[in-house]
């Protein structure tokens, strides 16, 4: 073995393991309600913290959150942080250049305490600022899927 590495690279071939994660009742209700262009949250009965999407246990005070605690939100919110993404994962462990940068924003919805991370469109990079008022832009046809929310865009 002199002068020869004892380690070899193992040749692999694509071997996809498929998953199908069940989302649970609260998230299901959130997703289905998107069809009617409505955004649901859940207000913790213990401490009032409001989650979007809704969930069944409060991370702040550990109270159980039930179906009755689900609230409808306006779909309007405020940009509290953002970034310009110039590259994206290519699915093979590397990064690829994007044709044009994507703005990813952290949006705090009106009457909610948790934050949604979504693309922000319809705004020039130089006009982006923390505190920008944004709202949901819906896909033309909504069918009760996560993709019904196209992105966020400036109000007005």
């Amino acid at each position: 073995m002199e002068g020869k590495s004892e380690i070899v690279e193992v040749k692999t071939f694509p071997f996809p393991a498929g998953f199908n994660w069940a989302v649970g009742p609260m998230m299901e209700r959130f997703i289905r309600t998107l069809a009617g262009r409505k955004v649901l949250g859940a207000r913790c009965p213990g401490c009032g913290y409001t989650y979007v999407p809704p969930r069944s246990r409060c991370g702040q005070c550990q109270a159980a959150i039930a179906e009755k605690d689900v609230v409808e939100l306006s779909g309007k919110g405020t940009l509290i942080s953002y970034t310009n993404a110039h590259v994206a994962p290519d699915g093979n462990g590397n990064l690829k250049d994007l044709e044009k940068p994507i703005v990813v924003g952290a949006v705090k919805l009106e009457d909610a305490d948790s934050v949604l991370f979504m693309p922000v469109e319809g705004v020039k990079p130089q006009d982006l600022k923390i505190g920008l008022a944004v709202k949901v832009r819906w896909r033309e046809e909504t069918k009760g899927a996560v993709a019904d929310i196209c992105c966020f865009e400036p109000v007005g």
Binding site: W21, G24, R57
Partner: peptide, 9 residues
């Protein structure tokens, strides 16, 4: 199949 809940629940 506990598909009535997600893993966290």
């Amino acid at each position: 199949r506990r598909r009535d809940v997600n893993v966290a629940e």
